[in-house]
Design a protein around this nucleic acid. Structure first.
Length: 206
DNA sequence: ACTCCTTTGAAGAGT
DNA sequence: ACTCTTCAAAGGAGT
């Protein structure tokens, strides 16, 4: 799972050429590079996506993959993976230049920030949110997230493990792209009420 | 324009 | 080692 060989494959992402094009219909308006496709084919999603619906029938790539590798947050639409990672910049500030596609603007500071990689539950939420919306029961994100939290606990271990695996890949990819990045970098980027956490610190039931 | 809400998980900070 | 805090996503609601 966390073999170096896998990391090595993912490192191919660093040399992604100019925006790829392919003839296949693309649900997410995205075509993986050969290196990316090679990596993606290693994932269970590439082999078994029978539960994935209508929109992915033409592709062996799980719909989450664009979320992972080409997230609209990580890759603003204006610069979709067309700029290779700067590996030559000795200065991290240069390497993390504003032109890099993984960076996106911060409206508060007008600086660009690398977001945390998504964890398993976040990936699950991102995939399943639209289904809850389609059910029409809830529209508010907070309510939807409560529903998805319950459904997450109802998932089998094997189903959850798919998301844990994806999250692991996401973290590895993130580490590859941003070796010096720390979650601490984004601390204080948004202000939150302290009262959100109950004093008992048991707000999360498992 | 900005924050809160609400969830779980990862990771940093503090004890 | 353990607990606590922050941030990831989402978008309606409230300030």
């Amino acid at each position: 799972m966390s073999s170096r060989g896998e990391i090595g494959l993912m490192s191919g992402l660093n040399q992604n050429p100019a925006a790829p094009t392919c003839g296949k219909p693309q649900v997410f308006d995205w075509c993986p590079s050969p290196q990316q496709q090679q990596y993606l084919n290693l994932t269970s999603w590439g082999r078994n996506n029978t539960t994935q619906t209508q929109t992915t029938a033409v592709s062996s790539v799980h719909p989450l993959v664009p979320l992972l590798l080409y997230s609209d947050r990580h890759f603003p639409s204006a610069s979709p993976l067309t700029q290779p990672i700067s590996t030559s910049a000795a200065d991290p500030a240069d390497a993390h230049s504003r032109s890099h596609p993984y960076y996106h603007g911060n409206s508060v500071t007008s600086r660009q920030v690398v977001k945390k990689p998504l964890n398993a539950f976040m990936l699950y939420m991102k995939e399943m949110r639209h289904k809850v919306l389609q059910e029409g029961r809830e529209r508010e994100s907070a309510a939807i997230n409560r529903i998805l939290g319950r459904r997450w606990h109802a998932l089998s271990h094997s189903e959850q493990s798919k998301y844990y695996d994806l999250a692991q890949k996401e973290r590895l990819l993130h580490m590859q792209l941003y070796p010096g990045w720390s979650a601490r970098d984004n601390y204080g980027k948004r202000k939150r009420k302290r009262s959100q956490q109950p004093s008992g610190s048991c707000s999360r039931l498992s």
